[in-house]
Design a protein around this nucleic acid. Sequence first.
DNA 1: TCGGACTCTGACGCCGGTGTCAAGGTCAAG
DNA 2: CTTGACCTTGACACCGGCGTCAGAGTCCGA
Lengths: 139, 139
Amino acid sequence: MRLTLMAEPRMRIGELAEATGTTPRALRHYEQAGLITSVRAANGYRLYDAGTAVRVRNVRHLLDVGLTLDDVRVFLPCLDGDVMAAPASEKALRVAADRLAVLEARIAAQVAVRDRLAAALREAGGGVPRRRGRERPAA
Amino acid sequence: MRLTLMAEPRMRIGELAEATGTTPRALRHYEQAGLITSVRAANGYRLYDAGTAVRVRNVRHLLDVGLTLDDVRVFLPCLDGDVMAAPASEKALRVAADRLAVLEARIAAQVAVRDRLAAALREAGGGVPRRRGRERPAA
DNA sequence: TCGGACTCTGACGCCGGTGTCAAGGTCAAG
DNA sequence: CTTGACCTTGACACCGGCGTCAGAGTCCGA
């Protein structure tokens, strides 16, 4: 357990953005969404302590993985550690599973669409001498 | 010299909508996008001739297949016959192929996302809740 | 003549995560 | 003091195919 005896280094939004590979705009958005917090300097500037960087990276990770900001919210209790190692609450698992189902459905729909277009294209241009170029030797 | 001496039966937007399984709103949208045309009655109502129904169905078909309204525009020259039997111009084929590539890319990205989420879920939930175990063949 | 069904144009809403102005305050360096 | 980099809040833009509401005109049957 670490008590913050020493004031952790506080960074401003620009630094945090650079440290996490995002933008100030995104960070404000995450804050507005309740995913991160900040204290304010006397001049109104947001100040983040170093641990926030981890949190932000975890948020980004979850976003990259296909969750939405709303989804990420339920992961809040474990966003400060290594997300992948956390106990993963029941609720979090359920949300993730739900999101996975959504993704699956969306993919299935798009695959169906793609297949139809591909079929149409084969039918329309199948006999056509459109083969003049090398398509793709390998996927 | 007008070949269409006999006025084809003209229908109003509601009829056309019902005949094609769409809505008046969508039809106006297609018209605004330049995909269909109409003449106006004295009272301002749109009047469509019967052939427009075929055109609309073709538009819908192409949309269902994953094209966008913009994409569909290049199919205009052959939208009045059986689209699937038409010669299919080079340009049309190119557009369709491009769109197919876009769909492929999008799907690939989402599949990657899904896989990551699924993996995360396996690791977090399928695996060991408290401590981190090796990958499990479950799921 | 009245009600109700149909049509018109125009415009906002949606979904989601930012990008990008606008208009201004703050602060360190030259 | 002045520049200029950084920060603030607020709000519009985007992408796409419509849904939906608002306010008003048109037409037909009873």
